[in-house]
Write a protein that binds this DNA or RNA. Structure first.
Length: 561
RNA sequence: UGAGGGAUCGUCCAAUGGUAGGACACCUGACUCUGGAUCAGGCGAUCGGGGUUCGAAUCCCUGUCCCUCAGCCA
């Protein structure tokens, strides 16, 4: 167990697991589970639970099951069970043959319910939902016993069997645990454990018309699977006594331990499935995998790597205090990973034409460029250079401000891996005043980018050769929301807080080596950022998504004025 | 104001009676054929008030603030 050997401090959960293992609890066995409800796509918040559940199991030589918590057919769909598995695998975790469904325990769960009735610990209640709410009491007042609470065991059994047989309409009756209507913990006030639902289930079809509630199904599923440590988020803290109550009441031989941790909150996104679904349904984004979505599918399409997300989770830690992690930590994690692995290429996002007046008309040179300065084994490639080029519009100013090092009339800069060039003149569009063409001269002695006389330039620009470049649609993504917490201010709607420039599309010119780039490949466009090939790409129709921009010192200087 | 939780740099996480530390962010500087990366440095916190102790983020008392729970959702 590598994590335990290091001096690095353990989080509170690992401290508990570590102790349990050392004390030989559960024979020193560690068995966890990741229990998603298949009612939406997995998001970055789930990745915290996934890395915790699968990660701890791996660290202690244990196992982690994947179990779909599919006890509510009205909200769950197969589309989600497929995407969830794909996303977990993509993240780098594996459950071998331990793919389970709460729904495959429906038979045994039903038996447990009958057993509870036999024990006098459950009863069929005829109260309507509204009545039940009234009987439940409030946070400060105790509830009242249901008038149906003292039915005989035989009657309860008969009624429950008839519920199962489909003799009653939906909402007509429920099975409730008989606990304590005066409990200060609302969860313990005779909670519902089975309800009638005639919606077909995505796995069991119409076999059942009664479905167990979460509290009943979850603890028993954990017990059935021999789970030792059952991690969940803070909002289930109040439910822990009920989790334990069911296991105690049914005298199950194996007692899993529920431990709660704080869920992940991230700035500049929304994380609830409800709000994410709304963004999808109202067309704010193109789908669950829109690159601006914090879903794993969206982040994958944006160009995030599994490594970067695992690293992120390792860095945020695990604790019980509610918190909100800064989005910039996520960005740091992708940049760090992509910096190591992404090949460098040159691409001009907003092309400005440059004519090298003293360069021979028809000459083409193949210049050697380094693929990844962080990884010598990535090798080099040839980039074609010719008389007519594109550089970035941002890299030229007629009147350069202070600290602006790039090209301007009379100024000399380096074209990366190519030549030093000096700008002599420029042409403008008479209508708009916009600069249309730059006329430059190059110094043949600086071929490759080095000056034999030791002359220095303050800037190195990326460029592409006009006649060799290929066009590409580049999607410049940014954070979906302009505020840190879009849910903080109830007077502001979600749409009012969207970042108006979360997506900007430009027609770029990129170097020809990108011609056969496969979907999902990661690149760094030098001086711009990290990009990935979108699945919308077609032969001859490259589409790149900007995963994250490079840190931009000049942008900061400029912003400060 | 019932019950259950929680409060440490701007943010996230450590320190479990013994020098409050790390990461991100931010600011300097060095270096640089990416204003990237890297390197060096800096800024910056124990919710308030009492108490115990040689010594308190940690233990005790007290106050404050925040989160969760009144679904036949999970």
């Amino acid at each position: 167990m590598p994590a335990a050997e290091e001096a690095a401090p353990l989080d509170f959960i690992r401290t508990i697991v570590n102790q349990d293992v050392q004390q030989g609890i559960n024979d020193g066995r560690v068995h966890t589970r990741f229990p998603p409800e298949p009612n939406g796509y997995l998001h970055i918040g789930h990745s915290k639970a996934i890395t915790l559940d699968f990660g701890i199991a791996a660290e202690y030589g244990g196992l982690c099951n994947l179990r779909f918590d599919d006890t509510n057919p009205t909200k769950e769909e197969v589309e989600y069970v497929d995407s969830i598995q794909e996303d977990i695998r993509w993240l780098g975790f594996d459950w071998d043959d331990r793919l389970y469904y709460a729904s495959s325990y429906f038979g045994r769960l039903y038996e447990c319910a009958e057993q509870l009735i036999q024990l006098g610990k459950a009863f069929v209640c005829d109260l309507s939902p509204d009545e039940m709410r009234e009987y439940r009491g409030t946070l400060t007042e105790p509830g009242h016993n249901s008038p149906w609470r003292e039915r005989s065991i035989a009657e309860n059994l008969d009624l429950f069997r008839r519920m199962k047989a489909g003799e009653f309409p939906e909402g007509n009756r429920v099975l409730r645990a008989k606990i304590d209507m005066a409990s200060p913990n609302m969860v313990m006030r005779d909670p519902v454990i089975y309800r009638i639902l005639y919606t077909p289930h995505h796995r069991t079809g119409t076999e059942w018309c009664i479905y167990p509630m979460y509290d009943f199904a979850h603890c028993l599923s954990d017990a059935l699977e021999g789970i030792t440590h059952s991690f969940c988020t803070l909002e289930f803290e109040n439910n822990r006594p009920l989790y334990d109550w069911f296991l105690e009441a049914l005298s199950v031989p194996h007692r899993p331990q529920q431990i709660e941790f704080a869920r992940l909150n991230l700035t500049h996104v929304v994380m609830s499935k409800r709000l994410l679904r709304r963004l999808v349904e109202d067309g704010t984004v193109s789908g669950w995998d829109d690159p601006r979505m914090p879903t794993l599918a969206g982040m994958r399409r944006l160009g995030y790597t599994p490594e970067s997300i695992r690293d992120f989770n390792a860095r945020i830690g695990v604790a019980k205090a509610n918190s909100m992690v800064d989005f910039s930590l996520l960005e740091y994690c992708v940049r760090t990973d992509l910096n190591k692995i992404a090949p460098r290429v040159m691409g001009v996002l907003r092309p400005l034409k440059v004519i090298i007046d003293n360069y021979p008309e028809d000459q083409v040179e193949e210049l050697q460029a380094i693929n990844n300065p962080e990884d010598p084994s990535a090798g080099t490639r040839a980039v074609p250079f010719s008389r007519e080029l594109y550089i970035e519009q941002d890299d030229f100013r007629i009147d350069p401000p202070p600290k602006y090092f790039r090209l301007a009339p009379g100024r000399e800069v380096r074209l990366r891996y190519a030549y030093f060039i000096t700008c002599n003149s420029y042409e403008t569009d008479p209508a708009t005043g916009e600069v249309t063409v730059l006329h430059c001269t190059y110094d043949p002695a600086t071929r490759g980018g080095d000056s034999p006389d030791g002359r220095k330039v303050k800037a190195t620009l990326h460029w592409v050769s006009e006649r060799h470049a290929i066009g590409a649609e580049v999607r410049l993504f940014d954070r979906l929301f302009s505020v840190a917490d879009p849910t903080a201010d109830a007077s502001q709607s979600l749409s009012e807080q969207l970042n108006p420039s979360s997506l900007e599309v430009v027609q770029a010119q990129v170097e020809p080596s990108l011609g056969d780039a496969p979907v999902g490949a990661h690149y760094q466009l030098e001086r711009q950022g990290y990009f990935t090939v979108d699945r919308d790409s077609r032969p001859g129709q490259l589409v790149l998504n900007r995963t994250v921009a490079l840190r931009d010192t000049w942008a900061k200087i400029e912003q400060k004025g």
